[in-house]
Amino acid sequence: MAMPQPIDEEEEPSTIEEVWERTPSYPGFQVEIIDGSLVVTPHGNFRHARLNYFLHTAFVEIAREKGWYLCHELTIHLESNHDRIEPDLVIMPPDPPTFGDSEVFGRGVLLVAEVTSRGNAIRDRFTKPRNCALSGVPLYLLIDPVDAPTAITLFSDPSDDGYRTIDRVVAGEKLRLPEPFGLVLDTASLR
C-alpha cells in the first residue's frame, strides 16, 4: 500500500502586507492597511458619492491645465509605516514614483482627499493625516459631513510630527489651497 504524499500547503503570510496582497477584492468594499491593521470598509452611500463628485469637479479644471491626474480607487503606499490607503480622490503628476505596478508612493502625489463617515471618522480625522504627513503627502483634504455643519479641513506642511498647518472651514465658506494649486475652493454647494 502506498503511503499518502504530504499535501503541499501554501505558506501562511508572515506580514500584514502579505495578508493584504492576498486578500481578494470584494465588490462594494475597500481593503486598506491602517496603522498596521487590515481594515475593510464598505464604499459610501449616496451622500458620500455626491461629496466625491464635488471633489472631482472642484479639481478637474486645474488638473487639465497642469496635466495632472484625478484618481479614484488608487492605492497609496505610505512609506513611513507601510500603510496602504485608498483615498476617495488622489491628485498626482503624470509620472509619480510607484511601488510595484499598482501602488503610488505617498511622497509622489500632490493631494489626498477623503470623505469621512461615522464608521471611519477617527481614522480619517487623525490616523490617516498623521501617517500621510509622515510619508510626505503634501496636502490632505478632508470633507467631514458626520457632524453638522459639514467641515472641510486642509492639512498642509508635512513634518515628522504630522501636519504643521490645519485650515478648517464649514460648508459655504471658502478654503484657500497653497501652491501648486493656488486656488480657492468654494464649498457653497456643500451646505
Rank of each mutant, 00 (worst) to 15 (best):
R168M: 15
L134T: 04
D157S: 15
I166R: 13
R164N: 13
D147V: 12
P138N: 08
T153Q: 13
P158E: 07
I166L: 12
S117D: 10
N120P: 03
L141D: 06
A151C: 13
N131A: 07
R164W: 12
T153L: 11
K128Q: 01
V146Y: 05
R125A: 11
L139S: 01
A133Q: 14
N131V: 03
A121S: 11
Y140C: 07
D160A: 15
I166G: 07
L141Q: 06
Y163N: 04
A151Q: 10
L141C: 09
T150L: 03
R164S: 14
D124S: 07
Y140T: 06
R164Q: 13
A151M: 10
T127Q: 10
S135F: 02
P138C: 09
V170C: 13
A151F: 07
C132D: 07
K128Y: 01
N120V: 03
V146I: 09
V170F: 14
G172V: 04
D157I: 15
S135I: 02
D147Y: 13
V170W: 13
A113I: 00
I122M: 14
R123T: 04
G172D: 05
R118P: 03
R130E: 12
A113Q: 00
D147M: 11
A133C: 15
V115Y: 00
G136L: 04
C132A: 10
G162T: 08
R125D: 10
D157V: 15
D124L: 06
S159T: 14
S117G: 10
G172Q: 05
I152E: 01
A133E: 12
L139A: 01
A171T: 10
D157T: 15
V170A: 14
Y140P: 04
S156K: 09
V115Q: 00
V169P: 03
G162V: 09
V112C: 05
T165K: 11
T150Q: 03
K128T: 01
R168G: 13
G119C: 02
V170I: 15
S117Q: 11
T165F: 09
D124H: 06
T127R: 09
F155W: 09
P129S: 08
F155H: 08
L141K: 07
S135E: 03
E114V: 03
A133I: 13
A148S: 12
N120C: 04
R168I: 14
